[in-house]
Nucleic acid binder design. Structure first.
Length: 192
DNA sequence: CCAGAGATATGCT
DNA sequence: GCATATCTCTGGC
């Protein structure tokens, strides 16, 4: 699977984090962004960069790459390709599982998972998890919509904003989800 | 609602 | 020193 395809496939996936103290937090991925490796100027492995921070991206698919930006915000990525092909998908927003099945949440509750930094804080994800497998470690990823649930609310998985397609060609979101981020400079045109 | 500033890890020049 | 895959707070309209 290519990385752009993986970014689409991750929409609706369930992230479950078992914290050291025993608490368990989970949320559903509703916005992603693909980073296409050494040829992508926006990617941390652009031009073959291979520093300690980005080493997990050079490893096999299905592992976490977590980094810190601007000193305080952590961002969580899923490594998507085989060893030696450093590509990944950034998780830009998540919502509580109960929103996905139709519950109503307040603006603040939805906001808590909106944005890469807030998504990490909501789930308790830190840079200590960078490099961990997402299949066997404390942070696990169930691909596809959670078992037993269907995609609801008319969401079209894999479709981003029609008006932003040109500006954000590698960003994918569940249309209509209030947790999805919207750059203020762009018109909020939702695909139908 | 919008714009600006500050915090401050990591990597590059 | 400078830039960045960000967020929060503040002050103005």
């Amino acid at each position: 699977m290519g990385t752009e395809e993986a970014a689409r496939a991750l929409l609706g996936a369930l992230l479950v984090h078992s914290l050291p103290g025993g608490e368990r937090r989970s949320a559903v991925v509703v916005e992603t962004e693909a980073y296409l490796g050494i040829g992508d100027p926006a990617c941390h492995t652009w031009r073959g960069r291979r520093t300690a921070r980005v080493l997990p991206m050079w490893g096999p698919a299905g592992h976490a790459y977590v980094y810190r930006v601007y000193g305080r915000n952590d961002c969580f990525n899923v490594v998507t390709r085989r060893r030696g092909v450093p590509e990944a998908v950034l998780v830009r927003a998540v919502v509580p599982l109960s929103w996905w099945i139709g519950d109503v949440w307040t603006r603040e509750e939805v906001r808590a998972g909106s944005g890469p930094g807030r998504a990490c804080r909501l789930l308790g994800i830190t840079t200590e998890l960078s490099g961990f497998s997402l299949g066997s470690g404390p942070l696990r990823l169930r691909s596809g919509p959670p078992r037993g649930f269907e995609v609801v609310r008319g969401a079209r998985v894999g479709v981003g904003y029609a008006g932003e397609a040109a500006a954000w060609p590698l960003r994918f979101a569940v249309a209509g989800c209030p947790a999805v981020t919207r750059p203020r400079s762009l018109l909020p045109v939702i695909a139908t």
